[in-house]
Design a protein around this nucleic acid. Structure first.
Lengths: 230, 230
DNA sequence: ATTCGATATTTTGCATACAAAAATCATTTG
DNA sequence: CAAATGATTTTTGTATGCAAAATATCGAAT
């Protein structure tokens, strides 16, 4: 007889360290912990309901992802959100997404493409209603699904790490109507290329899409900077 | 008055945790700790001359790089060296190196290219003498330098993480004379393209070069597998 | 008032302690 | 003799302790 109650036994067992990693990553990506915030171990450990040891392990883990910076004998800070870093991240992310797009065109099942198309229509709906937060959610899901369709877990992991940095910048990108429309149009073309399984085209579209995204993020960062200077 | 003795103060101060990360990474990459070896904390800490705390932090750090796997409540093991994983890594590495090659052709200083060319000749010399270990050393240095010339620290870090996996497989790749000659020839063309600053060409060459490297690694893995099966 | 310096406090980095889980081993039982 | 069971040991995961480094505080001197 099968053991239906047992299927989750291994997956469920989460280490405190991992939940701390996820919580802390969320805090950073959501901007709850602003860039360059000092991570006080005692305070943070209390806030997350653990002791310093698992928290320190989590900090080391996130340091490897580049979300926090370690300062010898001075603890750790949330990684600064520098324009130069953003440029670098977008260049790498462009290469990874382009690769993923190409692979997805070869490997995706028809059902996967249908799913992505469905997500796309959801996104269109939220765009039409001007619902930015939900638009972003579906947008992220679409990109995530394209990566997953590439069928390369190593690529997916590298992408996630890079994308975390982009997500962090997202909350300060106030999409102007014009830019938003353009982004949607680009998505339209991407879905088309994916449906036609035109890898070369999708690759190019993803590159352009990310390049435009970078421009928006850079403008937002510039705006934040001038705002901070006044 | 200036404080000339102070210039190294910040850089020099290394955390025990970091030296442990480096030591442990080396042990894994060099194959001293074989794939799937269980990492006993007490034993390893003693071997590296520290306590369990910094060791555990190092393990978490390397887990993020994918060199060790965490097993809930069962510690950690050196990441297995699976053919599927290798394929994935090489695909991603191909995209990263191609990108780096393209960027290097734009951004490298003439002096950098001259340096790389010099490394290339060193490598040729060791190839001619059949000195495999030294050949590998210069080979790695050349690839590293190309990445560096791209002028993208984020790219460089992502590359290093991927490359660690490849390095790990290297020690079991018994270069046959024929394959070795071919690899050298490919390097010859790469240097040429870089000198001409032909980014598109270098990109393509790097892709092919890595694809061939993958074939060699896969054969070696296959050989090891059949050997283990007897 | 500002800067410097000594002292007190906090915080980090590492080691150790302790409880819970896993692994091992011996014993028993079918 | 193999499998199962239970006790024992080992190992992991987390908390805590302690020394060293960094930071803050306060007062004195220019």
């Amino acid at each position: 007889m099968l053991q239906p109650s047992n299927v989750t036994s291994l997956a469920e067992r989460r280490l405190l360290h991992e939940t701390v990693v996820d919580q802390l990553r969320d805090l950073i990506v959501q901007g709850e912990l602003a860039p360059e915030t000092k991570l006080n171990e005692r305070v943070l450990a209390e806030r997350l309901g653990t002791s310093r040891t698992p928290l320190r392990e989590a900090i080391k883990f996130l340091a490897s992802e580049g979300l926090v910076e370690l300062l010898p004998n001075r603890g750790a800070v949330v990684a600064p959100l520098k324009p130069e870093k953003m440029q670098e991240v977008f260049v790498v992310l462009g290469a990874l997404e382009a690769l993923a797009g190409d692979l997805a065109c070869r490997n995706a099942a028809d059902a996967d493409i249908a799913d992505i198309r469905a997500l796309h229509y959801h996104m269109l709906a939220h765009h039409a209603r001007g619902e930015l937060a939900q638009y972003f959610r579906y947008n992220q899901q679409i990109h995530q699904r394209i990566i997953d369709c590439a069928g390369n877990a190593t690529l997916a992991q590298a992408w996630r790490a890079m994308n975390a940095h982009v997500k962090r910048a997202r909350y300060l990108a106030n999409l102007s109507g014009e830019r938003w429309d353009k982004a949607v149009k680009e998505h339209e073309e991407m879905i088309e290329a994916l449906t036609r399984r035109d890898g070369a085209k999708l690759q190019a579209l993803l590159r352009d899409h990310l390049a435009n995204k970078l421009v928006m993020v850079m403008e937002a960062l510039q705006a934040r900077k001038t705002e901070a200077a006044r």
